[in-house]
Nucleic acid binder design. Sequence first.
DNA 1: GAATGTCTGTTGGAAATCCAACGGGAGGGG
DNA 2: CCCCTCCCGTTGGATTTCCAACAGACATTC
Lengths: 232, 232
Amino acid sequence: MEQLFAGIDEGELSSLLGCLEAVRKRYKKGGMVFAAGDAPAVGMILNGALQVLAEDPMGNRTIIGRLGTGDLFGEAFACAGAEHMPFSVEAVLDSEVLLIDVKKILVTCPAACPFHSRLIENLMAILARKNILLSAKIRHISRRTTREKLLSYLSERSREAGAREFDIPFNRQELADYLCVDRSAMSAELSRLRAEGLIEYAKNRFTLLRRARARPGAARKANLQSGKERIP
Amino acid sequence: MEQLFAGIDEGELSSLLGCLEAVRKRYKKGGMVFAAGDAPAVGMILNGALQVLAEDPMGNRTIIGRLGTGDLFGEAFACAGAEHMPFSVEAVLDSEVLLIDVKKILVTCPAACPFHSRLIENLMAILARKNILLSAKIRHISRRTTREKLLSYLSERSREAGAREFDIPFNRQELADYLCVDRSAMSAELSRLRAEGLIEYAKNRFTLLRRARARPGAARKANLQSGKERIP
DNA sequence: GAATGTCTGTTGGAAATCCAACGGGAGGGG
DNA sequence: CCCCTCCCGTTGGATTTCCAACAGACATTC
Protein backbone atom coordinates (compact mmCIF):
# COMPACT_ATOMS: atom_id res chain seq x y z
CA MET A 1 0.00 0.00 0.00
CA GLU A 2 2.03 2.87 -1.23
CA GLN A 3 -1.00 4.99 -0.49
CA LEU A 4 0.70 5.78 2.78
CA PHE A 5 2.83 8.35 1.02
CA ALA A 6 0.20 9.43 -1.48
CA GLY A 7 0.38 13.11 -2.26
CA ILE A 8 3.95 13.40 -1.11
CA ASP A 9 6.52 13.61 -3.85
CA GLU A 10 9.98 12.10 -4.07
CA GLY A 11 11.96 15.07 -2.88
CA GLU A 12 9.79 15.70 0.13
CA LEU A 13 9.68 12.02 0.92
CA SER A 14 13.29 11.65 1.93
CA SER A 15 13.12 14.54 4.33
CA LEU A 16 9.86 13.18 5.70
CA LEU A 17 11.41 9.77 6.26
CA GLY A 18 14.21 11.43 8.15
CA CYS A 19 11.72 13.30 10.28
CA LEU A 20 9.96 9.99 10.98
CA GLU A 21 13.25 8.29 11.75
CA ALA A 22 12.19 5.53 9.41
CA VAL A 23 14.64 2.65 9.24
CA ARG A 24 15.35 0.55 6.19
CA LYS A 25 16.25 -3.00 7.10
CA ARG A 26 17.25 -6.11 5.23
CA TYR A 27 16.28 -9.61 6.22
CA LYS A 28 17.64 -12.91 5.01
CA LYS A 29 15.17 -15.59 4.10
CA GLY A 30 13.99 -17.02 7.41
CA GLY A 31 14.88 -13.92 9.40
CA MET A 32 12.45 -12.53 11.96
CA VAL A 33 11.09 -9.06 11.33
CA PHE A 34 8.96 -9.13 14.46
CA ALA A 35 8.61 -11.74 17.13
CA ALA A 36 5.33 -12.10 18.96
CA GLY A 37 5.56 -9.88 22.01
CA ASP A 38 7.67 -7.17 20.43
CA ALA A 39 6.52 -3.59 20.54
CA PRO A 40 4.39 -2.86 17.48
CA ALA A 41 5.65 -0.82 14.58
CA VAL A 42 4.45 -0.04 11.10
CA GLY A 43 6.28 -1.92 8.39
CA MET A 44 6.24 -1.56 4.65
CA ILE A 45 7.71 -4.17 2.36
CA LEU A 46 10.05 -2.58 -0.17
CA ASN A 47 10.76 -5.92 -1.80
CA GLY A 48 10.64 -9.57 -0.95
CA ALA A 49 7.93 -11.49 0.88
CA LEU A 50 6.98 -12.00 4.51
CA GLN A 51 4.82 -14.42 6.40
CA VAL A 52 2.69 -13.72 9.47
CA LEU A 53 2.65 -16.44 12.10
CA ALA A 54 0.67 -17.04 15.27
CA GLU A 55 1.38 -19.51 18.02
CA ASP A 56 -0.92 -20.34 20.91
CA PRO A 57 0.14 -21.53 24.37
CA MET A 58 -0.30 -25.15 23.24
CA GLY A 59 2.31 -24.67 20.55
CA ASN A 60 -0.12 -24.75 17.66
CA ARG A 61 1.42 -22.62 14.95
CA THR A 62 -0.71 -21.05 12.25
CA ILE A 63 0.22 -19.16 9.13
CA ILE A 64 -1.98 -16.10 9.24
CA GLY A 65 -1.04 -14.75 5.86
CA ARG A 66 1.57 -13.79 3.32
CA LEU A 67 2.66 -10.31 2.40
CA GLY A 68 4.37 -9.03 -0.72
CA THR A 69 6.08 -5.95 -2.07
CA GLY A 70 4.25 -2.75 -1.23
CA ASP A 71 2.20 -4.31 1.55
CA LEU A 72 1.84 -2.59 4.88
CA PHE A 73 1.81 -4.60 8.09
CA GLY A 74 1.58 -4.05 11.80
CA GLU A 75 -0.27 -0.80 11.27
CA ALA A 76 -3.43 -1.97 13.01
CA PHE A 77 -1.65 -2.98 16.21
CA ALA A 78 0.56 0.05 16.15
CA CYS A 79 -2.36 2.42 15.70
CA ALA A 80 -4.54 0.59 18.19
CA GLY A 81 -1.97 1.36 20.81
CA ALA A 82 -1.26 -2.31 21.52
CA GLU A 83 1.72 -2.96 23.78
CA HIS A 84 2.74 -6.18 22.09
CA MET A 85 2.40 -7.72 18.67
CA PRO A 86 0.35 -10.91 18.94
CA PHE A 87 1.96 -12.33 15.80
CA SER A 88 5.40 -12.97 14.48
CA VAL A 89 6.51 -11.85 11.06
CA GLU A 90 9.28 -13.63 9.23
CA ALA A 91 10.89 -13.27 5.84
CA VAL A 92 10.17 -16.08 3.40
CA LEU A 93 12.50 -14.48 0.87
CA ASP A 94 15.40 -12.12 1.23
CA SER A 95 13.50 -8.92 1.87
CA GLU A 96 13.82 -5.23 2.48
CA VAL A 97 11.49 -3.50 4.87
CA LEU A 98 10.85 0.07 5.92
CA LEU A 99 10.07 0.34 9.62
CA ILE A 100 8.39 3.35 11.17
CA ASP A 101 7.51 4.16 14.75
CA VAL A 102 3.85 5.12 14.85
CA LYS A 103 4.36 7.62 17.60
CA LYS A 104 6.50 9.58 15.21
CA ILE A 105 3.57 9.65 12.82
CA LEU A 106 0.90 10.54 15.30
CA VAL A 107 2.75 13.23 17.18
CA THR A 108 3.19 16.02 14.72
CA CYS A 109 6.73 17.26 14.75
CA PRO A 110 7.46 20.59 16.43
CA ALA A 111 8.34 22.03 13.04
CA ALA A 112 4.82 21.04 11.96
CA CYS A 113 5.95 19.94 8.56
CA PRO A 114 3.10 20.10 6.09
CA PHE A 115 3.41 16.47 5.03
CA HIS A 116 2.87 15.19 8.47
CA SER A 117 -0.84 15.90 8.49
CA ARG A 118 -1.08 14.42 5.05
CA LEU A 119 0.57 11.30 6.37
CA ILE A 120 -1.93 11.06 9.20
CA GLU A 121 -4.79 11.42 6.77
CA ASN A 122 -3.33 8.71 4.56
CA LEU A 123 -2.87 6.31 7.43
CA MET A 124 -6.38 6.95 8.65
CA ALA A 125 -7.74 6.38 5.14
CA ILE A 126 -5.84 3.10 4.85
CA LEU A 127 -7.31 1.85 8.11
CA ALA A 128 -10.78 3.03 7.17
CA ARG A 129 -10.71 1.48 3.72
CA LYS A 130 -9.50 -1.81 5.09
CA ASN A 131 -12.30 -1.60 7.59
CA ILE A 132 -14.84 -1.25 4.84
CA LEU A 133 -13.42 -4.16 2.88
CA LEU A 134 -13.30 -6.43 5.90
CA SER A 135 -16.85 -5.54 6.92
CA ALA A 136 -18.10 -6.28 3.45
CA LYS A 137 -16.38 -9.63 3.36
CA ILE A 138 -17.87 -10.54 6.70
CA ARG A 139 -21.33 -9.59 5.50
CA HIS A 140 -20.96 -11.99 2.60
CA ILE A 141 -19.37 -14.98 4.24
CA SER A 142 -21.64 -14.72 7.27
CA ARG A 143 -24.47 -15.96 5.09
CA ARG A 144 -25.03 -19.63 5.56
CA THR A 145 -25.51 -21.01 2.05
CA THR A 146 -23.48 -20.65 -1.09
CA ARG A 147 -26.49 -19.12 -2.78
CA GLU A 148 -26.88 -16.44 -0.15
CA LYS A 149 -23.19 -15.66 -0.20
CA LEU A 150 -23.28 -15.24 -3.94
CA LEU A 151 -26.35 -13.04 -3.90
CA SER A 152 -24.95 -10.95 -1.09
CA TYR A 153 -21.73 -10.42 -2.97
CA LEU A 154 -23.29 -9.82 -6.38
CA SER A 155 -25.85 -7.49 -4.92
CA GLU A 156 -23.10 -5.45 -3.31
CA ARG A 157 -21.06 -5.30 -6.49
CA SER A 158 -24.15 -4.17 -8.33
CA ARG A 159 -24.74 -1.46 -5.78
CA GLU A 160 -21.14 -0.33 -5.99
CA ALA A 161 -21.33 -0.23 -9.77
CA GLY A 162 -24.68 1.55 -9.60
CA ALA A 163 -25.99 -0.72 -12.32
CA ARG A 164 -27.52 -4.14 -12.78
CA GLU A 165 -24.67 -5.14 -15.04
CA PHE A 166 -21.16 -5.13 -13.66
CA ASP A 167 -17.78 -6.84 -13.64
CA ILE A 168 -16.21 -8.69 -10.77
CA PRO A 169 -12.45 -8.67 -10.11
CA PHE A 170 -12.25 -12.43 -9.54
CA ASN A 171 -12.17 -15.58 -11.54
CA ARG A 172 -14.26 -18.46 -10.22
CA GLN A 173 -11.61 -19.95 -8.00
CA GLU A 174 -10.78 -16.59 -6.45
CA LEU A 175 -14.43 -15.81 -5.90
CA ALA A 176 -14.92 -19.17 -4.22
CA ASP A 177 -11.92 -18.51 -1.98
CA TYR A 178 -13.22 -15.06 -1.15
CA LEU A 179 -16.65 -16.40 -0.24
CA CYS A 180 -15.17 -19.41 1.53
CA VAL A 181 -17.02 -22.01 -0.49
CA ASP A 182 -16.17 -24.80 -2.83
CA ARG A 183 -15.54 -23.73 -6.39
CA SER A 184 -17.49 -26.50 -8.07
CA ALA A 185 -20.43 -26.11 -5.74
CA MET A 186 -20.36 -22.40 -6.42
CA SER A 187 -20.30 -22.98 -10.15
CA ALA A 188 -23.29 -25.24 -9.80
CA GLU A 189 -25.13 -22.66 -7.74
CA LEU A 190 -24.39 -19.98 -10.32
CA SER A 191 -25.89 -22.26 -12.95
CA ARG A 192 -28.99 -22.71 -10.85
CA LEU A 193 -29.33 -18.98 -10.32
CA ARG A 194 -29.12 -18.51 -14.05
CA ALA A 195 -31.60 -21.31 -14.73
CA GLU A 196 -34.02 -19.65 -12.35
CA GLY A 197 -33.67 -16.39 -14.22
CA LEU A 198 -32.19 -14.50 -11.30
CA ILE A 199 -28.88 -13.63 -12.85
CA GLU A 200 -27.07 -13.73 -16.15
CA TYR A 201 -23.35 -13.94 -16.64
CA ALA A 202 -20.51 -14.54 -19.01
CA LYS A 203 -16.93 -14.64 -17.83
CA ASN A 204 -16.54 -11.94 -15.22
CA ARG A 205 -19.55 -9.88 -16.29
CA PHE A 206 -22.70 -10.40 -14.30
CA THR A 207 -26.23 -9.04 -14.51
CA LEU A 208 -28.87 -9.14 -11.82
CA LEU A 209 -32.23 -9.83 -13.44
CA ARG A 210 -34.89 -10.12 -10.78
CA ARG A 211 -35.40 -9.64 -7.12
CA ALA A 212 -34.01 -12.48 -5.12
CA ARG A 213 -36.72 -14.55 -3.51
CA ALA A 214 -36.44 -17.57 -1.33
CA ARG A 215 -35.21 -20.50 -3.33
CA PRO A 216 -37.99 -22.85 -4.45
CA GLY A 217 -37.71 -25.65 -1.93
CA ALA A 218 -35.28 -23.97 0.41
CA ALA A 219 -36.46 -23.20 3.90
CA ARG A 220 -33.30 -22.54 5.86
CA LYS A 221 -33.96 -20.22 8.70
CA ALA A 222 -32.76 -16.69 8.15
CA ASN A 223 -29.71 -15.76 10.17
CA LEU A 224 -31.38 -13.36 12.49
CA GLN A 225 -29.42 -10.15 12.43
CA SER A 226 -28.86 -10.20 16.16
CA GLY A 227 -28.68 -6.67 17.39
CA LYS A 228 -26.53 -7.90 20.23
CA GLU A 229 -23.62 -9.02 18.17
CA ARG A 230 -20.61 -8.48 20.32
CA ILE A 231 -17.11 -8.87 19.02
CA PRO A 232 -14.71 -10.03 21.71
CA MET B 1 -17.81 3.95 21.53
CA GLU B 2 -17.25 6.77 23.82
CA GLN B 3 -13.58 6.08 23.37
CA LEU B 4 -13.67 8.82 20.77
CA PHE B 5 -13.44 11.37 23.53
CA ALA B 6 -11.26 9.32 25.84
CA GLY B 7 -8.79 11.45 27.75
CA ILE B 8 -10.80 14.61 27.26
CA ASP B 9 -12.72 15.78 30.25
CA GLU B 10 -16.16 17.29 30.49
CA GLY B 11 -15.18 20.91 30.56
CA GLU B 12 -12.84 20.67 27.63
CA LEU B 13 -15.36 18.58 25.73
CA SER B 14 -17.89 21.31 25.18
CA SER B 15 -15.31 23.71 23.79
CA LEU B 16 -13.95 20.92 21.64
CA LEU B 17 -17.40 20.17 20.28
CA GLY B 18 -17.80 23.79 19.40
CA CYS B 19 -14.47 23.76 17.63
CA LEU B 20 -15.60 20.69 15.70
CA GLU B 21 -18.93 22.30 14.91
CA ALA B 22 -20.58 19.12 16.10
CA VAL B 23 -24.34 19.11 15.73
CA ARG B 24 -26.78 17.40 18.03
CA LYS B 25 -29.84 16.17 16.19
CA ARG B 26 -33.06 14.43 17.12
CA TYR B 27 -34.82 11.90 14.95
CA LYS B 28 -38.30 10.52 15.25
CA LYS B 29 -38.74 6.80 14.93
CA GLY B 30 -38.52 6.07 11.21
CA GLY B 31 -36.59 9.26 10.43
CA MET B 32 -33.59 9.13 8.12
CA VAL B 33 -30.22 10.04 9.60
CA PHE B 34 -28.42 9.42 6.33
CA ALA B 35 -29.73 8.44 2.95
CA ALA B 36 -27.54 6.38 0.64
CA GLY B 37 -25.65 8.87 -1.50
CA ASP B 38 -25.29 11.54 1.14
CA ALA B 39 -21.91 12.94 2.00
CA PRO B 40 -20.38 10.87 4.79
CA ALA B 41 -20.11 12.12 8.33
CA VAL B 42 -19.25 10.62 11.67
CA GLY B 43 -22.22 9.96 13.89
CA MET B 44 -22.45 8.99 17.51
CA ILE B 45 -25.66 7.75 19.07
CA LEU B 46 -26.42 9.63 22.26
CA ASN B 47 -29.57 7.60 22.86
CA GLY B 48 -32.02 5.56 20.88
CA ALA B 49 -31.35 2.99 18.19
CA LEU B 50 -30.59 3.12 14.48
CA GLN B 51 -30.65 0.67 11.63
CA VAL B 52 -28.28 0.49 8.67
CA LEU B 53 -29.88 -0.37 5.35
CA ALA B 54 -28.55 -1.20 1.90
CA GLU B 55 -30.45 -1.32 -1.34
CA ASP B 56 -29.11 -2.61 -4.64
CA PRO B 57 -30.23 -1.47 -8.11
CA MET B 58 -32.73 -4.34 -8.24
CA GLY B 59 -34.49 -3.01 -5.18
CA ASN B 60 -33.31 -5.73 -2.83
CA ARG B 61 -33.18 -4.14 0.58
CA THR B 62 -30.98 -5.58 3.30
CA ILE B 63 -30.64 -4.74 6.94
CA ILE B 64 -26.92 -4.44 7.50
CA GLY B 65 -27.05 -3.98 11.22
CA ARG B 66 -28.45 -2.29 14.28
CA LEU B 67 -26.77 0.34 16.40
CA GLY B 68 -27.41 1.39 19.95
CA THR B 69 -26.49 4.07 22.44
CA GLY B 70 -22.82 4.93 22.38
CA ASP B 71 -22.19 3.38 18.97
CA LEU B 72 -20.24 5.21 16.34
CA PHE B 73 -21.24 4.98 12.71
CA GLY B 74 -20.16 6.32 9.35
CA GLU B 75 -16.62 6.77 10.60
CA ALA B 76 -15.12 4.30 8.14
CA PHE B 77 -16.60 5.98 5.08
CA ALA B 78 -15.88 9.41 6.39
CA CYS B 79 -12.26 8.58 7.15
CA ALA B 80 -11.78 6.67 3.93
CA GLY B 81 -12.59 9.85 2.06
CA ALA B 82 -15.64 8.36 0.36
CA GLU B 83 -17.78 10.83 -1.53
CA HIS B 84 -21.05 9.10 -0.81
CA MET B 85 -22.43 6.83 1.85
CA PRO B 86 -23.37 3.48 0.32
CA PHE B 87 -25.90 2.79 3.06
CA SER B 88 -28.85 4.49 4.59
CA VAL B 89 -29.25 4.91 8.32
CA GLU B 90 -32.66 5.27 9.87
CA ALA B 91 -33.94 5.60 13.41
CA VAL B 92 -35.86 2.61 14.72
CA LEU B 93 -36.61 4.48 17.91
CA ASP B 94 -36.76 8.16 18.73
CA SER B 95 -33.07 8.93 18.86
CA GLU B 96 -30.52 11.60 19.49
CA VAL B 97 -27.35 11.70 17.46
CA LEU B 98 -24.17 13.74 17.49
CA LEU B 99 -22.92 14.49 13.99
CA ILE B 100 -19.38 15.58 13.23
CA ASP B 101 -17.72 16.55 10.00
CA VAL B 102 -14.54 14.49 9.67
CA LYS B 103 -12.69 17.25 7.94
CA LYS B 104 -12.99 19.26 11.11
CA ILE B 105 -11.33 16.42 12.95
CA LEU B 106 -8.53 15.78 10.49
CA VAL B 107 -7.55 19.34 9.81
CA THR B 108 -6.14 20.59 13.06
CA CYS B 109 -7.57 23.94 13.90
CA PRO B 110 -5.38 27.01 13.45
CA ALA B 111 -5.38 27.48 17.21
CA ALA B 112 -3.93 23.98 17.43
CA CYS B 113 -5.96 23.07 20.45
CA PRO B 114 -4.29 20.30 22.43
CA PHE B 115 -7.34 18.01 22.35
CA HIS B 116 -7.41 17.90 18.65
CA SER B 117 -4.42 15.62 18.31
CA ARG B 118 -5.81 13.47 21.06
CA LEU B 119 -9.02 13.19 19.09
CA ILE B 120 -7.14 12.11 16.01
CA GLU B 121 -5.31 9.48 18.00
CA ASN B 122 -8.57 8.22 19.44
CA LEU B 123 -10.24 7.99 16.06
CA MET B 124 -7.25 6.19 14.62
CA ALA B 125 -7.27 3.74 17.53
CA ILE B 126 -10.97 3.06 17.05
CA LEU B 127 -10.45 2.25 13.40
CA ALA B 128 -7.40 0.13 14.15
CA ARG B 129 -9.08 -1.84 16.90
CA LYS B 130 -12.09 -2.53 14.75
CA ASN B 131 -9.70 -3.65 12.08
CA ILE B 132 -8.14 -6.15 14.40
CA LEU B 133 -11.50 -7.51 15.53
CA LEU B 134 -12.79 -7.85 11.99
CA SER B 135 -9.63 -9.56 10.81
CA ALA B 136 -9.81 -12.02 13.65
CA LYS B 137 -13.42 -12.85 12.91
CA ILE B 138 -12.59 -13.43 9.27
CA ARG B 139 -9.75 -15.73 10.22
CA HIS B 140 -12.16 -17.84 12.21
CA ILE B 141 -15.15 -17.99 9.94
CA SER B 142 -13.00 -18.55 6.87
CA ARG B 143 -12.31 -22.03 8.14
CA ARG B 144 -14.52 -24.54 6.45
CA THR B 145 -15.68 -26.84 9.22
CA THR B 146 -17.26 -26.15 12.58
CA ARG B 147 -14.37 -27.93 14.24
CA GLU B 148 -11.78 -25.74 12.56
CA LYS B 149 -13.72 -22.60 13.36
CA LEU B 150 -13.89 -23.59 17.00
CA LEU B 151 -10.23 -24.46 17.24
CA SER B 152 -9.24 -21.28 15.46
CA TYR B 153 -11.31 -19.21 17.85
CA LEU B 154 -10.32 -21.04 21.01
CA SER B 155 -6.68 -21.03 20.05
CA GLU B 156 -6.82 -17.28 19.57
CA ARG B 157 -8.55 -16.72 22.87
CA SER B 158 -5.94 -18.84 24.53
CA ARG B 159 -3.20 -16.81 22.92
CA GLU B 160 -4.84 -13.57 23.99
CA ALA B 161 -5.18 -14.83 27.52
CA GLY B 162 -1.63 -16.13 27.48
CA ALA B 163 -2.77 -19.33 29.12
CA ARG B 164 -4.31 -22.67 28.27
CA GLU B 165 -7.29 -21.91 30.45
CA PHE B 166 -9.44 -18.92 29.63
CA ASP B 167 -12.95 -17.51 29.54
CA ILE B 168 -14.93 -16.61 26.47
CA PRO B 169 -17.34 -13.67 26.40
CA PHE B 170 -20.11 -15.63 24.68
CA ASN B 171 -22.75 -18.12 25.57
CA ARG B 172 -23.22 -20.96 23.11
CA GLN B 173 -25.76 -19.26 20.91
CA GLU B 174 -23.65 -16.13 20.66
CA LEU B 175 -20.54 -18.12 19.88
CA ALA B 176 -22.42 -19.99 17.17
CA ASP B 177 -23.63 -16.70 15.70
CA TYR B 178 -20.13 -15.29 15.83
CA LEU B 179 -18.66 -18.31 14.08
CA CYS B 180 -21.60 -18.52 11.67
CA VAL B 181 -22.52 -22.08 12.49
CA ASP B 182 -25.47 -23.92 13.91
CA ARG B 183 -25.62 -23.95 17.67
CA SER B 184 -26.57 -27.58 18.07
CA ALA B 185 -23.95 -28.73 15.59
CA MET B 186 -21.41 -26.64 17.45
CA SER B 187 -22.41 -28.12 20.77
CA ALA B 188 -21.99 -31.58 19.30
CA GLU B 189 -18.57 -30.67 17.94
CA LEU B 190 -17.51 -29.33 21.33
CA SER B 191 -18.53 -32.62 22.87
CA ARG B 192 -16.46 -34.51 20.30
CA LEU B 193 -13.45 -32.29 20.97
CA ARG B 194 -13.81 -33.02 24.64
CA ALA B 195 -14.27 -36.75 24.04
CA GLU B 196 -11.08 -36.75 22.00
CA GLY B 197 -9.23 -35.10 24.84
CA LEU B 198 -8.44 -31.94 22.91
CA ILE B 199 -10.27 -29.49 25.11
CA GLU B 200 -12.04 -29.28 28.41
CA TYR B 201 -14.78 -26.85 29.31
CA ALA B 202 -17.47 -25.90 31.73
CA LYS B 203 -19.79 -22.99 31.09
CA ASN B 204 -17.71 -20.23 29.57
CA ARG B 205 -14.35 -21.47 30.79
CA PHE B 206 -12.31 -23.47 28.33
CA THR B 207 -8.98 -25.26 28.48
CA LEU B 208 -6.87 -26.41 25.57
CA LEU B 209 -5.34 -29.78 26.41
CA ARG B 210 -3.38 -31.05 23.45
CA ARG B 211 -2.15 -29.99 20.11
CA ALA B 212 -4.85 -30.09 17.52
CA ARG B 213 -4.29 -32.77 14.94
CA ALA B 214 -6.38 -33.73 11.98
CA ARG B 215 -9.58 -35.29 13.16
CA PRO B 216 -9.61 -39.07 13.03
CA GLY B 217 -11.52 -39.75 9.86
CA ALA B 218 -11.62 -36.23 8.51
CA ALA B 219 -9.75 -35.53 5.33
CA ARG B 220 -11.06 -32.23 4.07
CA LYS B 221 -8.52 -30.42 2.01
CA ALA B 222 -6.84 -27.55 3.81
CA ASN B 223 -7.95 -24.14 2.65
CA LEU B 224 -4.73 -23.13 1.01
CA GLN B 225 -3.73 -19.79 2.40
CA SER B 226 -3.62 -18.23 -1.03
CA GLY B 227 -1.03 -15.54 -1.04
CA LYS B 228 -2.93 -13.90 -3.84
CA GLU B 229 -6.02 -13.09 -1.88
CA ARG B 230 -7.33 -9.88 -3.28
CA ILE B 231 -10.13 -7.99 -1.69
CA PRO B 232 -12.18 -6.05 -4.21
C1' DG C 1 -1.96 -28.59 -36.18
C1' DA C 2 -0.91 -30.84 -32.11
C1' DA C 3 0.22 -30.42 -27.46
C1' DT C 4 -0.33 -28.07 -23.30
C1' DG C 5 -2.32 -25.40 -19.70
C1' DT C 6 -6.00 -22.69 -17.69
C1' DC C 7 -10.62 -21.81 -16.68
C1' DT C 8 -15.34 -23.21 -16.19
C1' DG C 9 -19.33 -26.23 -15.63
C1' DT C 10 -21.18 -30.94 -14.47
C1' DT C 11 -21.81 -35.03 -11.84
C1' DG C 12 -22.02 -38.53 -8.00
C1' DG C 13 -20.91 -40.33 -3.65
C1' DA C 14 -19.08 -39.15 0.97
C1' DA C 15 -19.26 -36.13 4.67
C1' DA C 16 -20.78 -32.24 7.18
C1' DT C 17 -24.17 -28.95 8.15
C1' DC C 18 -28.62 -27.50 9.25
C1' DC C 19 -33.01 -27.82 11.53
C1' DA C 20 -36.46 -29.27 14.71
C1' DA C 21 -37.47 -31.40 18.71
C1' DC C 22 -36.62 -33.07 23.19
C1' DG C 23 -34.82 -33.44 27.98
C1' DG C 24 -32.11 -32.11 31.81
C1' DG C 25 -30.11 -28.73 34.82
C1' DA C 26 -29.54 -24.12 36.90
C1' DG C 27 -31.57 -20.14 38.52
C1' DG C 28 -35.48 -16.94 39.87
C1' DG C 29 -39.99 -15.82 41.68
C1' DG C 30 -44.07 -16.59 43.84
C1' DC D 1 -41.81 -26.66 46.59
C1' DC D 2 -43.61 -25.73 42.11
C1' DC D 3 -43.56 -23.28 38.01
C1' DC D 4 -41.28 -20.95 34.63
C1' DT D 5 -37.49 -19.52 31.80
C1' DC D 6 -33.10 -19.79 29.88
C1' DC D 7 -29.15 -22.31 28.49
C1' DC D 8 -26.95 -26.39 27.00
C1' DG D 9 -26.32 -31.05 25.04
C1' DT D 10 -28.21 -34.87 22.21
C1' DT D 11 -30.33 -37.11 18.41
C1' DG D 12 -32.14 -38.16 13.68
C1' DG D 13 -33.55 -37.06 9.18
C1' DA D 14 -33.43 -33.72 5.38
C1' DT D 15 -30.48 -30.81 3.00
C1' DT D 16 -26.24 -28.89 1.60
C1' DT D 17 -21.59 -28.80 0.98
C1' DC D 18 -17.40 -30.85 -0.12
C1' DC D 19 -14.28 -33.43 -2.96
C1' DA D 20 -12.58 -35.75 -6.88
C1' DA D 21 -12.87 -36.54 -11.47
C1' DC D 22 -13.95 -35.39 -15.99
C1' DA D 23 -15.23 -32.79 -20.32
C1' DG D 24 -15.55 -28.76 -23.16
C1' DA D 25 -13.91 -24.07 -24.44
C1' DC D 26 -10.28 -21.14 -25.18
C1' DA D 27 -5.53 -19.37 -25.46
C1' DT D 28 -0.59 -20.18 -25.95
C1' DT D 29 3.34 -22.44 -27.50
C1' DC D 30 6.05 -25.18 -30.22
